[in-house]
Computed example of a mutant assay.
Amino acid sequence: MGGHIMAGRGPAPKDSSRRARANKDPMALRVIHAQPTEQPDLPDFDVQVEVDGELSSRSFVWPARTREWWAMWGESPLAAEFTSTDWDYLLDTALLHARFWNGDHKVAPELRLRVAKVGATPEDRARLRIQFAQADEADEKRTRPSARSRHAGLKLAE
């Protein structure tokens, strides 16, 4: 047997100069300074409705569930960094949310995609590489023994 025995499994890696594909370094991250802005109110606007074959204008009424959803976004820790363009994007998304809660379920896929882009769920935030600081603190508390467990088996001297 004239072969050499090498540690590990599989063939030795190719010399980088002989590789067919050279993955380029990822582009450098461009950092800009943005000014977070406050959440705007849901806007008042009129919609055209057909009544007895006639078009008329009436004020749009935001569903209660959409007003709650909008308030939830305003209280989210993510909102602390939202800029005017983020809020504008969410306002458009609020319209889809209102349509969904008014029974137009065809908007569900677009609504789901749009809220994912701003980190609505833990999975979305993981994909966006966002983690709430409270999660770290909660993990630390779970791994730290409680006072009760530290003193288990101890008895007071009488």
Rank of each mutant, 00 (worst) to 15 (best):
K14M: 14
R114Y: 02
T143G: 07
V47D: 01
G74F: 00
A64T: 15
R19K: 15
W73Q: 05
A108G: 09
T66D: 08
A79I: 10
M1V: 13
H4M: 14
A22W: 13
R129L: 03
A64D: 13
G2P: 02
D139C: 09
E123K: 08
R21G: 06
E54Y: 00
A116C: 01
K14Y: 05
A157Y: 06
W87E: 03
D124V: 03
V61Y: 01
A138V: 14
H4N: 10
R99K: 09
R19C: 12
W69C: 05
L95S: 07
G153D: 07
M27V: 04
D92M: 10
P63W: 09
G74R: 00
D41I: 02
D86Y: 01
V49S: 08
K117G: 08
T37S: 12
W73A: 01
E50L: 11
A135V: 14
G53L: 09
S84G: 13
P13D: 07
P43E: 08
L91T: 10
W87N: 06
D139T: 12
P13M: 05
L55K: 08
M72A: 15
Q48W: 01
G74Q: 00
A126D: 10
S57K: 06
L55R: 13
R21W: 06
G10E: 04
R21T: 09
D52W: 04
R127G: 05
Q48S: 04
R150W: 02
F100V: 11
S16V: 15
E68K: 13
M27G: 05
S17C: 12
A28E: 12
